[in-house]
Amino acid sequence: MRRSRLLHVPFWFTYVFLYAPIIVLVVMSFNSGKSAYTYEGFSLKWYGVLAQDAKVMEGLVNTLIVAAGSTAIATVLGTLLAVGLARHTRSKTLDAIALMPAVLPDLVLAIGLLVFYGVVQFTLGLHSVTLSHAVFSMAFVAAVVRTRLSGADTSLEEASRDLGAGPVTTFMKVTLPQLMPGIIAGALLAFTLSLDEFVIAFFTIGNLDQTLPIVIYSMIRFGVTPEINALGAILLLVSFTAVIVGQRLTKIGESRAQD
């Protein structure tokens, strides 16, 4: 009994190690003082200061635009890529190539994309960041959907084709509903990755627009302030909300697929 309790020590230590900095950030975002390291009392004033910061609000809007656009592109292309790799081209080489953007260092991928845009004379801006994030996220979506696809019931697709349905109808009516939980999970992952991705955005955005991570980087060069803590707490809330919504949608998709 005593030995089993001792086994819980590393478990709880790991949780404390992971979440203690996040808890400190949230607590310090309600600090009434100007110091980001000394708690002087409860206050919501830094959230008001944050709401009035035009630069932060512009960066937030740009980030949401990029995240939504790249998620849509990555989800569609990643799903099609997963289906193609699993059902039409059984090649380990192609599997490795498809997943390469996910394992490449962000710096290498960012420099490669920047050079590519320069070669084809593609102007930089929010559109270039959206495409770059889609390239980066598509590999993750494909990996998640591919995992879901490996557990799908192929007999349903065979029955659909035997009954006269074409490939497109079979995919839309049979395959896609089975893959929906994986697609939702992949889209959620792509959105989260794009939301806080800094390196690729920094290299491919140009000089006119800035995403929120770049805005935060420019702010912390002069020191961390309670305003940045408030911004981090809001992003944390958005992330938790996205996870909860994603889990709910995944359960709905799984129940519909079983029906």
Rank of each mutant, 00 (worst) to 15 (best):
Asp53Ile: 09
Gln52Phe: 04
Tyr37Gln: 09
Asn31Cys: 08
Asn31Phe: 11
Gly33Val: 07
Phe30Gly: 05
Lys34Asn: 14
Ala20Ser: 09
Gln52Trp: 00
Asp53Glu: 11
Trp46Asp: 08
Ala51Arg: 00
Met28Leu: 06
Ala54Val: 01
Thr14Trp: 15
Ala54Leu: 03
Gly48Lys: 07
Tyr39Cys: 06
Ile22Leu: 13
Tyr19Arg: 04
Glu40Cys: 10
Ser43Trp: 04
Met28Ser: 00
Ala36Cys: 11
Thr14Met: 15
Leu44Lys: 01
Gly33Lys: 10
Leu44Ala: 11
Tyr47Cys: 02
Phe42Val: 13
Leu50Gly: 00
Tyr37Thr: 12
Ala36Asp: 08
Tyr19Val: 05
Gly41Pro: 12
Lys34Gln: 13
Phe30Pro: 04
Gly48Arg: 10
Thr14Leu: 15
Tyr19Pro: 02
Ala36Gln: 09
Ile23Ser: 06
Leu25Pro: 06
Ser29Thr: 03
Tyr15Ala: 12
Tyr15Val: 15
Ile23Asn: 00
Ala51Tyr: 03
Thr14Gln: 11
Gly33Ile: 06
Tyr37Ser: 10
Tyr39Ile: 06
Tyr19Phe: 15
Asp53Leu: 10
Trp46Lys: 07
Tyr19Met: 03
Asp53Pro: 07
Asp53Cys: 08
Lys45Asn: 07
Thr14Glu: 09
Leu18Ala: 07
Val26Ala: 06
Val26Gln: 01
Thr38Ser: 12
Tyr39Gln: 05
Ile23Met: 12
Val27Leu: 13
Leu18Ser: 01
Phe42Asp: 08
Phe30Glu: 05
Ser29Ile: 05
Trp46Gln: 07
Trp46His: 14
Ala36Lys: 09
Leu25Ile: 15
Phe30Leu: 11
Tyr47Leu: 01
Tyr37Cys: 03
Ser32Ile: 07
Gln52Gly: 13
Asn31Ser: 10
Thr14Lys: 06
Ala51Thr: 01
Lys45Gly: 01
Tyr47Met: 03
Asn31Trp: 11
Leu44His: 05
Gly33Ser: 09
Thr38Val: 15
Ile23Pro: 00
Lys34Pro: 09
Met28Gly: 01
Glu40Arg: 14
Val27Gln: 04
Ser43Thr: 01
Leu44Gln: 04
Thr38Tyr: 15
Lys55Arg: 14
Lys55Val: 14
Thr14Ala: 14
Ser35His: 02
Trp46Ser: 08
Val16Thr: 12
Tyr15Ile: 15
Phe42Thr: 08
Trp46Met: 10
Tyr47Ser: 01
Gly48Phe: 08
Lys34His: 13
Asp53Tyr: 09
Leu25Cys: 12
Leu25Gln: 11
Phe17Ser: 10
Leu50His: 02
Ala51Cys: 01
Phe13Trp: 13
Phe13Met: 14
Phe13Val: 14
Ser43Ile: 03
Ile22Asn: 02
Ser29Met: 05
Val16Arg: 05
Tyr39Ser: 04
Ser43Glu: 02
Lys55Ala: 14
Phe13Ser: 13
Val16Ile: 15
Val49Ile: 13
Val26Leu: 05
Ser29Gln: 04
Leu18Ile: 13
Val49Arg: 12
Pro21Asp: 07
Ala20Ile: 11
Ser32Asp: 13
Ala51Ser: 04
Val26Asn: 02
Ala54Trp: 00
